[in-house]
Amino acid sequence: MPPAVRERISAVTQKGVTLKDVAAAAQVSRATAARALNSYGYVGGETARRVLEAADRLGYRGNRIAEALRRGQLPLVGFVPGDIQNPFFARIAHDLEVELRKQRHNLLIASSEEDVEQEKELLDSLRSLSIRGFIVAPASATDNRHIAELAVGNVPLVLVDRAVKDVQCDSVVVDNEGGAREAVDYLVANGHRRIALLRDDSRIFTAQERLAGYQNSLREHGIALDESLVSISRSTVEHAVEATIRQFSRRDRPTALFTVDSLMTQGALLALRSMGLSIPHDVSLVGFDDFNLATFTDPQITVVAQPISEIGPLAAKLLLDRLAGNRPAIRNIRFPTRLVVRGSVLHPRKS
């Protein structure tokens, strides 16, 4: 071994070994060393042997993750939820990770924060990493060309919680319209006619379906829709507090409130109590989505429950089937919801 090479080896062992170090020790270019180590392109037999021997002497390990990503060999699945801070999506992410890990796949989570442009950028970035498949909760039911491109691009794709019209791929959702209708039916059966709705952005598939359930129930019971009873809020506790206070500060306030997700339900609870309004004596409350605090409040909160423990595992199974090369017919699964009656609804007080 030439003295210069021996000195080079001694020096690099004192620090992290790089591709440049291996190339210098083997007396080749970095490009040649990269081809020899990563088994792509042509490298002569004797040159390849020198590179491999130099890498072995130096203890070079390389960036295995980068190599695997570049060659599409790392078993990564991308999950793009609406907002990972939402307990619903946090639970879905947990269940996806558990199921995928059983099949030696890893989950990479990137939240769109309900922003379509951010969702597009995230999907482009993830595709550049050779992600093997995607599970997505689309931020919009209408602006979805980028979702359609995934579906037709031979990229395994499962939509979760939210379907997209005319996009042909597997999906796992619940009967949002039916669940919302059952909630409002229950309020009407308990004598309520002025029922407020606290909902989120109308671009979102679930918001559209839950609004439809609210409207359909009122129509079926012969109750005219009062648009002033419909409040729009971002799906956060803070925004729901503000929207609820605005709604119930009016002189002819509603006797009941239906909220379309658990964060809004929590915000409504805080707002009503801050206003000195008692649940259910002053205001009856039903929320879509069960949540831990719903059974720790007094009274406990009546909710429309989703089978959340089944949604994530099933979405993972559908994607793993596609990744395994199976080509069954497209599967669109829609779970029923369940009204869980607790103590937050009473007949309205007579004025």
Rank of each mutant, 00 (worst) to 15 (best):
A4V: 06
A4Y: 08
V5H: 03
A11Q: 05
A23I: 06
A23F: 04
T32F: 11
A36S: 04
S39C: 04
R50A: 01
R64P: 04
A66T: 02
G72V: 01
G72D: 00
P75S: 06
F79N: 11
I92N: 02
N106Y: 15
N106I: 09
I109H: 09
A110Q: 01
S111H: 02
D115W: 07
L123Q: 14
R127D: 12
S128L: 09
L129G: 09
S130K: 13
D143W: 01
L150C: 06
V158F: 04
R162L: 06
A163W: 04
D166Q: 15
S171T: 07
V174Y: 02
G178F: 03
A189L: 07
D200Y: 15
Q215T: 14
S217I: 03
L218H: 00
I223E: 15
L225C: 09
E227K: 12
I232C: 15
I232M: 14
R234F: 11
T236L: 11
V241I: 10
R246M: 14
S249T: 07
R250D: 01
T255E: 09
T259W: 06
S262F: 00
L277C: 04
S278Y: 13
H281C: 09
H281R: 14
N292M: 08
D298F: 03
Q300G: 13
T302P: 01
T302L: 07
A315I: 05
D321P: 04
D321F: 05
A329W: 00
R334F: 06
L339D: 09
